[in-house]
């Protein structure tokens, strides 16, 4: 590290973004190797500046994410090996191979769950906000979602409740310009989503997705206000570098547009800024990149070696332990056919 470094936080945010990029590249590789559980893999490459938001949160704060939430969870402290294992449907994964990429969660880190229903996890932060308000715990809860959820009614119901009840809640829209194959200007009558949030009485902010420090600046203010019972909304204006899911080659957009979008790379921007401000030089940043690559390679290899869950575990955790569990079909059939007199 350079001697000029006086503030390590931006460097750490760069490292966090690099870890996300590196992780997602290997998740893509997992898929290509046929090692992922299913085809539902939504990469957050291009959206790494969300680190500016997660970095403004405190230990004990909670959050929900959407189907494209790997980056958010990693930035909140997830173990990449356990994440990778969950994505591959392994017993050692965060959810013991029951959830996968789109339903990853970890109570200890405050992750109340990734969600595969667009907007489905948003009202959960309203409920978490009620808990924290009633207990005066000082915690906040943040919903992360994409621009697609801006068309879901439950978002607006949730915004209204958060404002009405003065809840410690933030709605964070990672606008990557696409809901599957539909560009945001083909799904929204009016762009610039902050106005919608303000209409409900939320504090709204907007940040460019290639500027993690700008995201962080906006997020800090929103977090402080939310802790004070003034809920907020943050739109991070990003670009989804690749297709909706791994099979999607994005035939609905032009190579020119993609090149322009990928030029808005939060990692490239951060590298230039850190160097210009003397916080890190190219060698420092290269070492960060190399460390992330080593870490994520190890996570990938550990995952490939991990065991799948045993078949009987399918009946576990439908209900709480110690309460009546689902009856395996074989047991029912055996009872019917063995008890019946011949």
């Amino acid at each position: 590290m350079t001697e000029a470094r006086s503030n390590i936080a931006p460097v750490l945010r760069y490292a966090a973004m690099r870890r996300i990029r590196s992780f997602e590249e290997r998740v893509g590789e997992l898929f290509l190797r046929g090692q992922s559980a299913g085809s539902m893999l939504h990469l957050s490459i291009g959206e790494e500046a969300v680190v500016g938001m997660t970095d403004a949160m405190a230990p004990g704060d909670t959050f929900t994410t959407h189907h494209r939430g790997h980056g958010v969870f990693l930035a909140r402290g997830a173990d990449p090996a356990r994440m990778m294992a969950e994505i591959a449907g392994k017993e050692s994964g965060y959810c013991r191979g029951k959830g996968g990429s789109m339903h990853i969660a970890d109570r200890a880190l405050g992750h109340l769950g990734a969600n595969a229903i667009v907007g489905g996890g948003i009202p959960h932060v309203v409920g978490a906000g009620l808990t924290y308000r009633n207990r005066r715990s000082g915690q906040i809860s943040v919903a992360f979602f994409g621009d697609g959820a801006m068309s879901q009614g439950i978002l607006y119901e949730s915004m209204n409740m958060a404002a009405l009840w003065h809840l410690p809640v933030i709605f964070c829209c990672i606008n990557n310009q696409y809901g599957m194959g539909t560009r945001v200007d083909r799904s929204a009558g009016k762009l610039g989503f902050g106005g919608r949030a303000e209409a409900f009485g939320l504090i709204a902010a907007h940040a460019e997705g290639q500027e993690v420090e700008a995201v962080h600046h906006a997020a800090r203010d929103l977090v402080a206000a939310a802790r004070d019972g003034r809920p907020g909304f943050l739109e991070i204006d990003a670009y989804r570098f690749y297709g909706h899911a791994r099979m999607d080659k994005s035939p609905y957009r032009s190579p020119e547009e993609e090149a322009e979008g990928r030029a808005r790379d939060p990692l490239t921007t951060a590298r230039a800024r850190l160097a210009a401000e003397g916080l890190a030089d190219a060698a420092d940043l290269d070492r960060i990149d190399a460390a992330a690559a080593v870490e994520m390679d190890a996570a990938l290899e550990a995952d490939v070696a991990a065991a799948p869950p045993g078949l009987p575990t399918m009946f576990q955790d439908v209900y709480a332990p110690g309460t009546p569990a689902p009856r395996p079909q074989a047991d029912r059939l055996r009872a019917v056919l063995s008890e019946a007199p011949r």
Partner: peptide, 26 residues
């Protein structure tokens, strides 16, 4: 009123908020 909460006519978010409150300890 913190324990008996009159909600707006937003059934999905009423149930969704209950889910989130239940997840976090209420």
């Amino acid at each position: 009123a913190e324990r008996v909460i009159d909600a707006p006519i937003s059934e999905p978010a009423i149930v969704g908020a209950a889910v989130g409150a239940a997840m976090t300890g209420l």
